[in-house]
Design a protein around this nucleic acid. Sequence first.
DNA 1: AGGTTGGCTGCAACCGGTTGCCGTCAGGAG
DNA 2: CTCCTGACGGCAACCGGTTGCAGCCAACCT
Lengths: 320, 320
Amino acid sequence: MAATIKDVARVSGVHVSTVSRTFSAPHLVNPATRSRVLAAADDLGYRPNRAARALTTGRTFNLGLIVADISNPFFPPLIKAAQAQARGRDHHVFVADTDEDPRVEEELIRTLAKQVDGVLLCSPRLSNKLIERLAEDVPFVVVNRRVRGLPSVLMNVAQGARLALDHLAGLGHRRIALVSGPAGSWTSNEMRAVAAATEGLDLVGFGPNQPTESGGLAVASEVAASGATAVLAYNDLVALGVIEGLAEQGIGVPDQISVIGFDDILPGRLNRPKLTTVAMPAAAAGRMAVDLLLQSGGEGATVTLETALIVRESTGRAQT
Amino acid sequence: MAATIKDVARVSGVHVSTVSRTFSAPHLVNPATRSRVLAAADDLGYRPNRAARALTTGRTFNLGLIVADISNPFFPPLIKAAQAQARGRDHHVFVADTDEDPRVEEELIRTLAKQVDGVLLCSPRLSNKLIERLAEDVPFVVVNRRVRGLPSVLMNVAQGARLALDHLAGLGHRRIALVSGPAGSWTSNEMRAVAAATEGLDLVGFGPNQPTESGGLAVASEVAASGATAVLAYNDLVALGVIEGLAEQGIGVPDQISVIGFDDILPGRLNRPKLTTVAMPAAAAGRMAVDLLLQSGGEGATVTLETALIVRESTGRAQT
DNA sequence: AGGTTGGCTGCAACCGGTTGCCGTCAGGAG
DNA sequence: CTCCTGACGGCAACCGGTTGCAGCCAACCT
C-alpha cells in the first residue's frame, strides 16, 4: 500500500540508490535531482521504512524503556523526562510494562533487543546474572540497580533513608517499622542496610511486600501491633496504604504513628495528611539514563543522584 | 555479534531456508533435521530477528499504544489491560506518550506505523481528518473518539454526565460549573452537549483547561466566584485540583461546594474528602481495543462501554 | 590538447529472514 | 520392475532500504 523507495525512484526517474541518498546523505546528490526526488516523495507520501533501514545500518533511533509497573506514579515523570531527552536527540522511546514478572521482563527485553538501539531497564526484577547475559544482545542502562559492567543510574537511597531516619529520631522516635518492597529490589536492600547500621534505633522489619497501596494496607495491622511509633515505607504508595490501614483501625497519623515514604508522587501531595517523603530525582534519572545510553562511550559509568527529604504532615513528635 | 540464521545453518549443516522453516513452519521439516537445527540454534543463542521477519511477512506481532499523557492515572489500567490481552494473543504492546502535543502525536504514529501491526490511539488530540489520512498507513483503533470508518471504543460519557448531573440535581444543586478539558477533546464536547441539553439547570462553562491537577487549580477561584454550588469536572485530576484550589480560599468541599469528577483514579480514592466520580471502564476499553485491532474483520465497528456513578464524599446537599 | 580531478549517479551486494517452486529420493501401488 | 506420490530440503527471488565501487562527464590545470 504505502509508497516505497522504488515508487519514488520510478516517478522521479532515478535509481533507488539516489533516492536513498537524498534522504540519508543529501550532500551527495545534485540539488536539482534532489528537489525532483523530494517532490516525487512528497507527492507519493513516501516515508522511509525505519525497520528496513535498521536492517542494514543497525540503528533504529528507537529506545526501549522497561518498567515493572506503569501504574506506579513514580515512573511517569521518569518516562516523560526520558522521552523528552530522547526526542531532543532524535530518538523515540517505547515503554513496556512487565507486571512485576521477571519472565515477562526477559521476554520483553528479547523482543525489544533487535528493534531498538538500547534499553533503559528501570527497577529490574531480573537477577544480575541474567541481566549481564542479556546485555550481550542489546545495550542497557540500568536504573535503580548496580550491575557489573553496565552503566547505571542510581538514586542515593541510602542517603535518603538516613535523612528520613534522622528526621524520625529527631522527633523522638526510637522504635521504627521498616516496611520493605518486593524481594528482588535493590532499593529495598539499601534501605535495610542503612537502617540496620543506624545506632540507637530499634528496627522492626516487615516484608517483602507488594510495592503498592494494597501492599501497605495488608501490612498495616501488623505494624500497629508491633509497637513502632514510626514507619519508614518502601515507597509512597505503600506509605499511603499503611496510613489507610491504620486509619481503619482508628489509629491517627501523625498523632499516634508517623509515616514516611519514598518517591514524592502526586497522590502523596494530595493525601490528607500530606505525606512526608524522600523525593527521588526521577526526571533527572530519566534524562541521565538516556544520555548514558546514547553516548556509547560511557561504558560502565555509574551516576548517583541525590535525594531530598520533604517534610509535610504525616510525621510528628513521638507519643510520650 | 548476535547469531543469525546463517550461523545456525552453517553449524547444523543445512540451508537457511530449512532453519527458517524449523521456526515458522516446523511440520515441514523432518523431526531429525529439526532437532539438529534446534540444538544448533540453542547452542548459539539464536533468536530470529523480528524486524527482519517483519520485512517479508508484514507482521511484527507488536502493537503501538499512544496516549496523550502517561502520568494521568487514568491510562495505566487501560495500558495494563491492553498489554495483558495482547500478551494472550502473542503480541507485545509498546507505549508512547505525546505530551498532549498533536505534532508529536503525528510523528509518533508515523514512526510506529511500519514497526507495529496496529495502533491503539487513546484520547487523540489530532483532527479527525488527519487521523483518517494516517489510517492508510497503519490499522487503528481509536479510544474515546469516533472517527469515520475506523473501529473505536467509546465510554458512554453522555450517560455518565447524565448520572452525575442527576445526582447533583437530586441534592438540590441548580447552578453548576462545568470545568472542561483540552480543546480537541471529544469527551469534553460530549459532556458539554449533555449539560446544555439538561432542563432546569443553570450551567456555567469554564475552559478549555489542561486536563491535570494544575488545570483545576488554576480555574478554582473563577469557579468560586461564579456562584455555582457544584462542579462537574473533566476528570478526577482536574476535580482534585479544583478541590485544592477551593481549600486554599477556605471553601469547604462538600459543605459549601460539591465536586464530581470522571475516571475513578487512585488519588481520588485516597483524597480527603474521597472523590465522588463517574467510573470509566478503562481496563475493559483496553481489552476491547486490542480485540478490535486483532480481529481485522471488524472494520468500522464501534463499541460503547457503560459508566457508573460512584458516590463518595465530595458531593452533598446544596447550601440553602 | 591531454591528463586530472571531482561531482554525481548507477550497479550490485548485502542486512536477516521468508516462501514459491522444483528436484531428489524412498516407499507403496500395480 | 515401472510409475506415482508425497515428504523433504535446496535454490533463488524478494521485502525496503544502504553503501562501496566504478563509470561518466564537465571543468580545471599545465
